[in-house]
Design a protein around this nucleic acid. Structure first.
Lengths: 112, 112
DNA sequence: TCTACATACCAAATTTTCTTAGGTATAAAA
DNA sequence: TTTTATACCTAAGAAAATTTGGTATGTAGA
């Protein structure tokens, strides 16, 4: 459960990866998706996620659209045209990083 | 080359992994070893490494012994008895983290 | 000889980033 | 009606890295 420590620095790239796979997502959804994928082992905290989303939006990587669903506000984020390129770069770098961590940890490389 | 970003938080665990494999190592050697293993893709900066080593020593995870080699000072670090357990825990958690990153990135799990 | 580069250690100011700890609000379930 | 889930957010503080500087020796090249 102390895996959170290692997450530092990867947050933006994880968000961008999820938004490559999903046309649009909202913040809370992102936290839940990561929790699902990692079977509860990784939990994004909102205090880290929201500032990151705002930063990516300010950088022009993400754009937003608001929606009212079941009486609650949602703020959907999606990649901008420029954002798609940045996402590809970030995900590719994170993939390389994982590969390097595997080498350091003496793990066999991924089959992917 | 911007993989450095993702390294945040993993530094201690990487050091502990290398010290599980090598009885003792000195700081500069650690930076070079990581560079070798990752074919130059990951470079530990000294400004990050040395404070980390000092912290691990202060915590009783590592102990040191000085040596004079070819007219130059070296400070060897090795795991303390307690440190071996902490190293196992840290490496195990980092391995789990890598596994979770693979899931998020849609990579096949490791064969290791 | 002088310079540059590799080796080998370190500290401190700054910046970046996350954690912690709050806050607001609606809907559903107990 | 209280708790839990949903859904957004901010701000103070802490943690960790980057950046930039320093010291010092040995070696290779111009």
């Amino acid at each position: 459960m102390q895996q959170q420590t290692y997450l530092k620095g990867c947050l933006s790239a994880i968000v961008l990866q999820l938004l490559q796979e999903n046309r649009r997502m909202y913040g809370y959804e992102i936290t839940q998706r990561v929790r699902e994928i990692t079977l509860g082992e990784l939990q994004l905290t909102e205090g880290a996620l929201y500032p990151t989303l705002h930063k990516l939006e300010a950088e022009g990587v993400l754009s937003t659209e608001n929606a009212l669903v079941d009486g609650r506000n949602r703020k959907y984020y999606k990649l901008t045209e420029n954002g798609h390129q940045q996402a590809q770069t970030a995900v590719s770098e994170l993939t390389d990083f994982v590969s390097n961590l595997q080498k350091i940890l003496n793990l066999k490389p991924s089959l992917g």
